[in-house]
Design a protein around this nucleic acid. Sequence first.
DNA 1: CCATCTTTGTGCACGCGTTCACAAAGACAT
DNA 2: ATGTCTTTGTGAACGCGTGCACAAAGATGG
Lengths: 213, 213
Amino acid sequence: MPTVSSEELAAAAGVNSAKLRKDFSYLGSYGTRGVGYDVEYLVYQISRELGLTQDWPVVIVGIGNLGAALANYGGFASRGFRVAALIDADPAMAGTPVAGMPVQHTDDLEKIISDNGVSIGVISTPAGAAQQVCERLVAAGVTSILNFAPTVLSVPDGVDVRKVDLSIELQILAFHEQRKAGEEAAADGVEPPAAAKQQRKGPDGDVPAVMPA
Amino acid sequence: MPTVSSEELAAAAGVNSAKLRKDFSYLGSYGTRGVGYDVEYLVYQISRELGLTQDWPVVIVGIGNLGAALANYGGFASRGFRVAALIDADPAMAGTPVAGMPVQHTDDLEKIISDNGVSIGVISTPAGAAQQVCERLVAAGVTSILNFAPTVLSVPDGVDVRKVDLSIELQILAFHEQRKAGEEAAADGVEPPAAAKQQRKGPDGDVPAVMPA
DNA sequence: CCATCTTTGTGCACGCGTTCACAAAGACAT
DNA sequence: ATGTCTTTGTGAACGCGTGCACAAAGATGG
C-alpha cells in the first residue's frame, strides 16, 4: 500500500507539516500512525470533500470571446464540471458550434436549466445584460453564479456569487511592480507612505482590503 | 469641498470603520478631524498608491479565445493598463487585427518588449508553450507575469508570477453548493466530516489552503 | 509479548490582524 | 476667544489561525 507522510507532502507543497495534518484532521482521521496516509484513500477523501467526485452540470451564458474561451477550457472536465449548454442572446449564433457544442438561444434558458438539473451558472455577457441574466438563472433554480461581467450582481439570500475581475490580478502585479521601481518614486517630492515599506508576507502578497470600485 | 466620513465609506463597503481608517492611515493622514476625507484628494492618493495613475504597457502572448477576450476587455484601460502588443506564434495570425490591433509574430517578442518598455506580460498560450514564452519574456526584461496557462511557471528571483485558474472559482462554488445540498449526503452511509459543519466566516468563504495540484 | 521506532493527532503558546474605545484635532457657533 | 460637537488617528484588547512540541497509536523486530 503506497503511503505518504505529512512531512513529505508538506515539503512538496511548501507548507508546515503540522498545519497540513491539522487540515487533514478536519476531514477525519485517515492516517496511520507510524506509517502515514494511504495515498489512494487520501486522494479519494479530499476529492469527495471538495466535490470533485460529483458531476456538476454548468451553463455558460454569453458566448463572446470569453465565453468561447471558457467553453474550450480543458480544466473544467477534469475537475468534475460538465458544460451542459452554451447560451447566447444573439439569434444569429443559435446553432453555431462552439467547442463542439451548438449555441442555444436565451429563450430556452429556463428549460435548459431545468432539464439538466443545473445549479451553477457562468455569466460572461456584457455588463448591461448580466443582472437580467442573473435573475433568470436564479428564478430557474441556479444557486451559484460565477460572474465575469464587470458588474456587481444583486441576488437573493441563499445564492452564492463569485465575481472574477480579470484586471484585478494585473493590478496586483502593477502594485508590486511599482514597489520594485520603488525608491526612485521618492524623488517626486512625495514622501513614500509607510505601507510602501512593509514587506510582503508570503508568495501571495495581497493588496489592501478596501479599494474603490 | 465634498467629503466623506470613514463611517459612510465603511457602511457602503460593508467593513469596519476603524479598519478603514487604519488602512487609510498607512497612506498618510489625509483626513480632517470633525469633517472626514476630501473625496477628490483621497481618490487621487489611493489611485497613486495602487499605481492607477501610471501607464502600464502590457503585452498579451497567445491570441486564442482567451487572449482575444483579454485584448477586448474594457476594464484594462480604465485601470491604467495599455495593451502595447498582441503576440502569437502562429504565422497565419500575423497581421490579423484583434481588438483593433494587428497580431505580431513571436519572433519580434524581444524587440516589442524593449521598444515599449514593457514590464508586465500576460500569457494565454496553451500549457505547452507557457514556460518557454515565460523565459523569453523574462530574458527580454519583463518582471511581472500574469499566467492563464494551466502550468506552474518557474522564474528567477525578482520576477512576480500570478496564476489565474479559471476553474478554481467554479470549484469554490461547487464546494459551497455541495454543502447547501448538505445533510442529505449523510444518507450515503458516509459520516460528514467536521469541516462540513463549520460555518462560513464571511461573504467570501474560502477553501482549505492545501489541495492537490 | 515486550521494546523500540515512526508518524499521527492535538493541546497550547505565540503572533498578527481586526475591533474597540478614546484622546487629540479641528470645525463651527456663540 | 471659548465651548461644543464631530470625526480622525491610534494604543490596547481581543480573537483566530499558525506552528511547536509531545503524548498516543500503531507498526515492526527481537
